[in-house]
């Protein structure tokens, strides 16, 4: 076969040049993808902060009860600003296990893995002060931090925060539950009379507002402190409504 030697060598030189310099083939396009560094902006970030004093559409956050957990007077609200049902609590359990359990422990006793590694131990949810605390308080702590705890506003969305609060309430309720609070068929699954039920079994979630949870399944016993290893909870198919 004959190929023009000139054309062939030119092609060869050019293609090697092309390979050598950079990946021309749309591998690196002149566009930004998330978190890609920028030569253009002084801080080297391609992702820009909103201009000060501006609010993006949909982020006005006027509803103080929902976004801050406070009423008009600035007091923590007592009632949930969202309707709480089984799905919300399941979602709350999943998010709790991801973001809270590392310190607060899976049953809210304040003995998470990080605490064992030296982080300041947070109080248990099951002390009276927190059992009495309004829901707005928990929301406020997640949103703004409290003591050694930094805020989680960037990691947990408002609706998920309320779900977590709902789940905390469920944990508190479960810690102090009576066998009579259980539905009849669930009672039969308690191993034996007189045997102290395990913490996990006690943490049967219960609705803070009298929703019927007769079909609520038992939460399987899980080794505490290893989130993600098993049983991270609810089906993710019902995300809380996003703003």
């Amino acid at each position: 076969m004959k190929i023009s030697p000139i054309a062939a060598s030119a092609l060869a030189v050019l293609s090697f040049a092309a390979l050598g310099c950079s990946r021309l083939d749309m591998q690196d396009q002149p566009k930004y993808r998330p978190q890609r560094p920028s030569q253009f902006f002084a801080d080297g970030r391609s992702e820009r902060q909103p201009v000060e004093g501006t609010i993006a559409r949909g982020t006005l956050d006027e509803d103080t009860a929902f976004y801050q957990g406070k009423d008009a007077a600035g007091k923590d609200i007592e009632a949930f600003p969202i309707a709480v049902d089984k799905k919300v609590i399941e979602r709350g359990q999943q998010r709790y296990d991801i973001y809270c359990a590392p310190c607060h422990g899976r049953i809210g006793n304040g003995l998470g893995m990080i605490v064992r590694r030296g982080f300041k131990q947070p109080p248990s949810y099951h002390i009276d002060r927190l059992r009495q605390a309004p829901v707005g308080h928990f929301y406020d702590v997640i949103t703004n931090g409290y003591g050694a705890m930094l805020n989680y506003s960037a990691q947990v969305e408002p609706r998920d925060r309320w779900a977590i609060v709902a789940y905390i309430r469920a944990l508190q309720y479960a810690e102090n539950a009576n066998i009579n609070d259980l539905p009849q068929e669930a009672r039969s699954r308690i191993p034996a009379a007189g045997t102290a039920p395990s913490k996990a079994q006690q943490s049967e979630p219960i609705a803070p507002n009298d929703t019927d949870f007769s079909n609520f399944p038992a939460v399987p016993a899980t080794p505490s402190g290893v989130p993600g290893a098993a049983g991270a909870g609810a089906a993710p198919s019902n995300q809380p409504e996003r703003k």
Partner: peptide
């Protein structure tokens, strides 16, 4: 060893 869920960071 810490058992932190992936989503804790990769939100």
């Amino acid at each position: 060893s810490m058992g932190i869920d992936c989503r804790y960071c990769h939100t």
